[in-house]
Structures are given as structure tokens and as C-alpha cells.
Design a protein around this nucleic acid. Structure first.
Lengths: 213, 213
DNA sequence: TTCACACTGTGAAAACTGTCACAACTATTA
DNA sequence: TAATAGTTGTGACAGTTTTCACAGTGTGAA
């Protein structure tokens, strides 16, 4: 396994979405510089990223939009359907649910968890919501390996610990607290507070750059 | 100006929050390795990051929690109050608003924009909501330089263009479309779809690593 | 057919980011 | 007082990510 970088994986996912949009618009072929313009990266970056999936474009027509999208899928997607658990159904949790439902055929949020009695044991955006105290059992039974943490900062670490014990291998954390996890678990931190402070900083000390990625 | 890296800025913001938590818990001094453990980074990383703000700790007591937090503030914070605009008050917009209100004294979301007649001309989480068609004018009049985009993908680029025209210098984009902006504008892309695909990928091809940052 | 062109794929270089290791320092202890 | 232990700040190094630049290639025009 060639150990592909985190950044590259993220961009591949983005390229695929852009390719799918192009295809929906009737475009058949695309050059690296076109894809690059849409993704706001350099053309060389696009070609370098595409090296890892082993799909070759034509020097004259560029990349076949449909085939490239498929090839990225072969590389990125799970061979079988892969369920995701969502902990916390506050504003953020519901936003995530509505953003993500129906995006990818074999990548879906299949179980959500909350304490609020008004949400529990109902379907929200087509996803069943269970009481939090059953999270460990249900995640384990369903064999879920990926989770989203959208609970308040105070309970984030405890929720993460439960999920890890239930067999989760990777998580996105939206709570404003870094998670402590064992080395085999992958965590992506998405801290809105930090992000905002960073962006506010760069509004002043305006660094000259294209939107970095 | 020493041109501090984006990553470092983000971590400084995190360190400050952790320091403030410690102080609230009555802790007076902290060593780099303690801060490192809480932030899930290495101790050397912490020391390296702190170099840029020019505050020195004591080799025996470590860092003075209160003074260090202040020093980070001097470096990170705006000298005067800095307003932020929020475009879009769907689930995500409201989540951001409730996460962020009252966090930082001179960094606050001072205006939000939506099309929904039920939200417009009211205060939501203490923040006034205006109709979208007045966004350009209001942002310009208030001198807002930082904005958050939480509108659907379809209108994200148009909203960004308007904001840039109104003088915005940096943005966080939560819409699942990369924004095209002039070189002097800083954009932080926060694409939940991409993030989820990335995390799902690493659940399978489990790479051995601490939670990278 | 042959040439010119614009693009792809990739080795090599550059730029950036994090880690290592150690001199310098300070409180504590003997 | 002197030795000790544990920490900071930082130069040098290592690893990673991006860009550069160009050889190789398919297509269309002359």
C-alpha cells in the first residue's frame, strides 16, 4: 500500500464531486487545468494527486470525466456499504444529517444518538435516532467503524471513549476539544472556534495567497 | 512581520482556550508537555509555536497560565472589536451562532443574513438577522472584514462575490463548493462531505498515527 | 507524411512543517 | 556552597508536500 497522504485523499474526494457536476452538465472530457481551476489548486497538483489512483488521461483530450470519477471511486470507496454513526442531534448534528443524506450510495449515516426524549426513537432526515445509553451496543452490533461527534465539549471525550471501545476506527470531531484516542484511531478535528479565530487573524495580517488548501 | 504559518495560528488559538480552561480550574503554571497532552501534539511543537509570540516561560515552573494566555491574545486578537458576518441561518448557521456567541470579547458575529421571512428582522441568539439583499450595503457600512458562508452550495459563489465586493478580507466556507476569490482574500474551506469521505477512507486503510493535526 | 501544438506523467528541486537533541537556566536539595 | 533534576528555547535535521520543468505522446493541420 503506497500510503497516500491525508491531503491527497481530501482532494480526490473533491475532484470526484466536481467531475460528477461536470458530467451532470454534459461535459465529457476535462484537462487537469480545468479541474484545477474548479478545485482552486494548481494543475500540477491535480496530476500529482491522480497519480496515486493509476488512471491515465489522454494528452489530447484530457481525462474522461466519467471514467475518472469511477476510478476515484474504486480507490476511495468502501467495497461494501459502510455505515456511519452520528453522536448528537443538536443544530449541528441535524445540519450534518441534512447535508449528507443521499450523497454517496455506499456511505451513509445509519444511526444517530441523542438524549432528548423528543428525538429518541424517531426517524430524523430518514435516520433512526436512538438513546445515547445504547450507543455502544448498537454501534458494535452494526459493525460501525466511523463516527461523527457533534455533542457539547463537555461530553465529547466520554462519547469518543465509548465509540472507540465499541470498535470505531475513525472519527470527525466537531466539539471544541481535542480528543485523546489510541494510536490506531484516526481523528479529524473540525473546531469552528479555532477556525474562526484563524480566519479573523488572516483578515488583518492579510497574507497574499490564493485560497490555500 | 515573520509570516506565521496557518497551522501555528490555529494551534495558538487552541492553546489559549486550553490555558483559559486551566485557569478556570485554578491552575497557575503549565509545562509545555502538559499543554501538549491536552492539545494532542508534541511538546516540541508547543514550544516551537510559542516562539512566534515572544513569551518566555521559566525553566523550573513552566509557563504562567494567565500571562501566556494574555500574550497569545496580544498576538492573535484584533486591537479593536472585529465584527463577523454570517451568511445563511439554516441549521448550520444557527449551530455556528450558538457555538460562538460570547466566546471572545472582541470577536463576535454582529450581523447575519437570510432570505426566510420568518427569520429576517429579528434577533437570533442575540444577533440581528437582515434580509440577504441588503448584505452588501450592511457589511460595507459596518466595515466587516470577515465572513462565514453557511448557505447552500448553489448560492455560495454568488454570496462570496458580493462579500468580497463589500470589502471582506477573509472567509470560512461551509458550503460544499470551493470558492474562487481574488488573491488578497483568504478562504478556509470546511467541507463536511469531503471530510467525511476522508475519515471513512482512513477507517479502512487504517494508518498508524496519533490524531494528526 | 511531417510538423506543430497542447497536454500528460514524473524525476528533481524547492518550500514548508515537525522533530530531535542539547546548551542554558532555575529551583531544590544535600 | 555545589550538585542535581527537570525544564525552556533553538539550531540542525528529517520528513512531507508542492511546484518546476521537461521528455513523451496523441491529434489535427499542412
Amino acid at each position: 500500500m503506497p500510503q497516500v497522504s491525508e491531503r491527497t485523499i481530501g482532494r480526490l474526494s473533491l475532484y470526484r464531486r466536481l467531475l460528477d457536476e461536470m458530467r451532470a452538465g454534459g461535459v465529457m472530457y476535462a484537462y487537469s487545468h480545468q479541474l484545477a481551476a474548479m478545485a482552486a489548486v494548481s494543475a500540477a497538483q491535480v496530476r500529482r494527486d491522480l497519480m496515486v489512483i493509476g488512471y491515465s488521461g489522454s494528452p489530447s483530450r484530457g481525462y474522461d470525466v466519467w471514467q475518472l470519477s469511477q476510478s476515484i471511486g474504486v480507490f476511495l470507496d468502501a467495497p461494501v456499504k459502510q455505515g456511519i454513526a452520528l453522536a448528537g442531534l443538536g443544530n449541528l448534528g441535524r445540519a450534518i444529517l441534512s447535508y449528507f443524506t443521499g450523497r454517496r450510495p455506499n456511505l451513509a449515516i445509519v444511526a444517530s444518538f441523542d438524549n432528548d426524549a423528543r428525538k429518541v426513537n424517531r426517524f430524523i432526515h430518514g435516520c433512526p435516532c436512538y438513546p445515547s445509553d445504547q450507543m455502544g451496543r448498537i454501534v458494535e452490533e452494526m459493525g460501525i467503524q466511523t463516527a461523527i461527534i457533534a455533542v457539547p465539549a463537555g461530553s465529547a471525550q466520554a462519547v469518543a471513549d465509548q465509540l472507540v471501545r465499541a470498535g470505531v476506527k475513525s472519527m470527525v470531531n466537531f466539539a471544541p476539544t481535542p480528543l485523546r484516542v489510541p494510536p490506531h484511531v484516526y481523528v479529524e478535528e473540525t473546531d469552528i472556534t479555532t477556525t474562526l479565530e484563524k480566519v479573523a487573524y488572516f483578515a488583518r495580517s492579510g497574507r497574499l495567497m490564493e485560497d490555500s488548501k
